[in-house]
Design a protein around this nucleic acid. Structure first.
Length: 462
RNA sequence: GCUCCCUUCGUCUAGAGGCCUAGGACAUUGCCCUCUCAAGGCAAGUACACGAGUUCGAAUCUCGUAGGGAGCGCCA
C-alpha cells in the first residue's frame, strides 16, 4: 500500500452538483480511502456575486447521498479550518504581504475596460490575448498619481520572463510550459478578495493536500499556480487532470443532454450505488467490471488508470447498474424506494419489471385501477383470439375465480387453445400489456369482479 | 492567433514492439429457457482517425496531417 494520500473536493457553490464534478470528487474520495488517507471538502466561495448558501447546502446533501464523506470540511472543521474561502481572508492577506515584500507581485491600476480593449486589440492583431504589462514597472510617482485619482489596484503576479515550469502530471505524465507564454495574472481583486489561481493553489498546499484531481480544463493553468507556490515557498501538491465528462454527442455535458446534475438523477429514482458503479468506469479502468459494493470500490480503484481522453456519458450503461443495484435490494428496501403502500407480494412480483420508480405505475393500475388503451401488439393478440374466446374466459372465471391454473384448465378444454395462444390473450385482457410479471400471482391480486369486467370487455356483445 | 491536451468496437475501456487473426463490459441481433417481460445460458456483428518513417516485426516508438477539446478573464 502506498503512502497516505490527502485529496480534496473544492467546489464553488454556484449551481447544483454536476455529474462531472461528482466524478472527480468520487475519484478523489476513492484515492484517499484506498490509501487510508484523508478527504477534505473545501468550499470555494470567493465570488460573492454568484455564490448561494442554498447551493452549498445542496452540494453537501448530494455528496452525502453519494456516500462521499469528508474528514475535514466547513461543517465539521479540522486542523486547517476554516474550510470556506470566504472566511480565509486574513490568511490570504498575510500571503499577499509576503509576496509584496519579495517583490514578486505588483499593483495594477488598469480598469476592466482597459483590459478588455487590450485583449481585443491583441486578438485582432493575431496575438495571444495577454496582459500587456502596463503597470509592471510603474514608478512611485506614477503609482501615487493613480492612487490620487482614486483608482483601486488589483495585485498581479509578475511572471518571470525566461522561466520554464515543469511538473509531472498524475495522469498525463511530464509537462513543460514556457513562462513567456503566460501573462501576469491577477491574484487579488480590486475589492481585496483573493482570486482563484491564488487561493485555490495556496489552500491546497497549506491544507496538506498531496494529490489534486481536477478536470482537464485546468491543465494549462497549473504552471501559474506552481509559480505562485514556488514564490511562496509552499509545497507543491501533485496535480492530476482527468478527461472531461461529455454528452453522448461529445459536446460538454449540458442541459440539452437531459439530466446532468446528481440531484436530477436522484429525483428520477436512480440509486446512489448505481450512479457510483457507473462513474467508477467512466474514464477509469478498474481490474473488475462486475458490480461492486461502494465499500469495495477503493480497493479496486486504480489511479494510474485514470483516463486522459474525455468520456461520454451514456445513460444506457447507468441503467445497467441501476438494474444491478435493484437486484441486490430487499423487498422492503424496494418498497421504501418506490414509496409504495402495496403489499410485499406485489413488490416481489413486479420488481424485475421496474428500473425507475415511474415504471411501477402501470402495475399498480393492473391490481387496482384503470387499464390504459391497448397498444398495437396487444390489439393484435386480442383480435387473434376473437370475442368468443373472451366470452368463454369470462364464463370460466365464474367457476375458477382468480385461480389461473383452474381458469386455464377450463379454457383449454372449452377452446382447444394452449400455450401462448391461451395465455397471451388472457394476459393482455387482464393486464392491458403483452409483457409483464407472472400472470398467476398478478391475477390473484385482482378481485374476481375486476378480472371478469376486463375479460368481458373483449367478449361477444350479448 | 498562440500554448497545451485528446483520438482502440455504437458507448466505457484492456493494451506500455512480437502473447493481438486486438480482450472485456454495456448496448444491439439471433438461439435456448419460457404464457410474455425480466433474469440466466449460448452465439454473432462491430474498433486501433489518416499518412509517412524507425524496426525482422507497431494499436504500441518518431514525425506530420485531420478532427475534437481546453487555456490565454478582477469565473472557478
Amino acid at each position: 500500500m502506498s503512502l497516505p494520500v490527502v485529496t480534496r473536493f473544492a467546489p464553488s457553490p454556484t449551481g447544483s452538483l454536476h455529474l462531472g464534478n461528482a466524478r472527480t470528487a468520487f475519484f478523489s474520495h476513492l484515492w484517499a480511502r484506498k490509501s487510508r488517507g484523508r478527504f477534505i471538502l473545501r468550499i470555494e466561495d470567493t465570488d460573492v456575486e454568484r455564490n448561494q448558501a442554498r447551493f452549498r447546502d445542496e452540494l453537501m446533501v448530494d455528496l452525502g447521498w453519494l456516500g462521499l464523506d469528508w474528514d475535514e470540511g466547513p461543517d465539521i472543521g479540522g486542523p486547517s479550518a476554516p474550510y470556506s474561502q470566504s472566511e480565509r481572508g486574513a490568511f490570504y492577506q498575510d500571503l499577499f504581504t509576503r509576496l509584496q515584500r519579495s517583490e514578486r507581485v505588483y499593483r495594477c491600476y488598469c480598469t476592466a475596460e482597459d483590459l478588455e480593449l487590450s485583449r481585443k486589440l491583441q486578438r485582432m492583431a493575431g496575438k495571444p490575448p495577454r496582459y500587456a504589462g502596463t503597470c509592471r514597472n510603474l514608478s512611485a510617482a506614477e503609482r501615487a498619481d493613480r492612487e490620487a485619482r482614486g483608482l483601486r489596484p488589483t495585485l498581479r503576479f509578475a511572471v518571470p520572463n525566461e522561466a520554464v515550469i515543469d511538473f509531472d502530471d498524475l495522469v498525463h505524465g511530464p509537462q513543460k510550459f514556457a513562462a513567456s507564454d503566460i501573462g501576469d495574472f491577477i491574484i487579488r481583486r480590486e475589492d481585496g478578495s483573493a482570486a482563484f489561481f491564488f487561493c485555490n493553489a495556496v489552500d491546497d498546499a497549506v491544507m496538506g493536500v498531496t494529490h489534486v484531481l481536477r478536470g482537464d480544463d485546468h491543465l494549462t493553468n497549473t504552471p501559474r499556480q506552481l509559480m505562485l507556490l514556488d514564490a511562496l515557498e509552499l509545497r507543491r501538491p501533485g496535480y492530476g487532470h482527468v478527461g472531461l465528462l461529455v454528452g453522448a454527442d461529445g459536446a460538454p455535458l449540458s442541459k440539452r443532454h437531459g439530466s446532468t446534475s446528481v440531484h436530477e438523477f436522484r429525483e428520477r429514482g436512480f440509486l446512489s450505488p448505481a450512479v457510483l458503479n457507473h462513474l467508477f468506469h467512466l474514464g477509469h479502468a478498474s481490474d473488475v467490471d462486475r458490480w461492486l459494493a461502494p465499500a469495495d470500490m477503493p480497493a479496486h480503484f486504480r489511479p494510474e488508470h485514470l483516463g486522459r481522453a474525455s468520456a461520454r456519458f451514456d445513460e444506457s450503461q447507468l441503467m445497467h447498474w441501476q438494474k444491478e443495484a435493484l437486484q441486490r435490494m430487499s423487498t422492503a428496501e424496494i418498497r421504501a424506494w418506490l414509496g409504495s403502500n402495496e403489499p410485499p407480494e406485489f413488490i416481489d412480483l413486479v420488481r424485475h419489471n421496474i428500473v425507475l420508480p415511474a415504471d411501477a405505475a402501470p402495475w399498480v393500475a393492473v391490481v387496482h385501477g384503470e387499464l390504459p388503451p391497448l397498444g398495437p401488439e396487444e390489439r393484435r393478440v386480442v383480435a387473434d383470439a376473437g370475442p368468443a374466446f373472451f366470452s368463454a374466459a369470462a364464463e370460466a372465471l365464474d367457476q375458477s375465480g382468480t385461480d389461473l391454473k383452474q381458469l386455464t384448465k377450463l379454457l383449454k378444454e372449452r377452446t382447444g387453445r394452449k400455450g401462448a395462444d391461451l395465455f397471451m390473450p388472457l394476459r393482455v385482457a387482464l393486464t392491458g400489456q403483452a409483457h409483464g410479471p407472472e400472470l398467476a400471482p398478478l391475477l390473484l391480486l385482482m378481485t374476481p369482479e375486476t378480472a371478469r369486467l376486463r375479460l368481458e370487455s373483449y367478449a361477444q356483445n350479448s
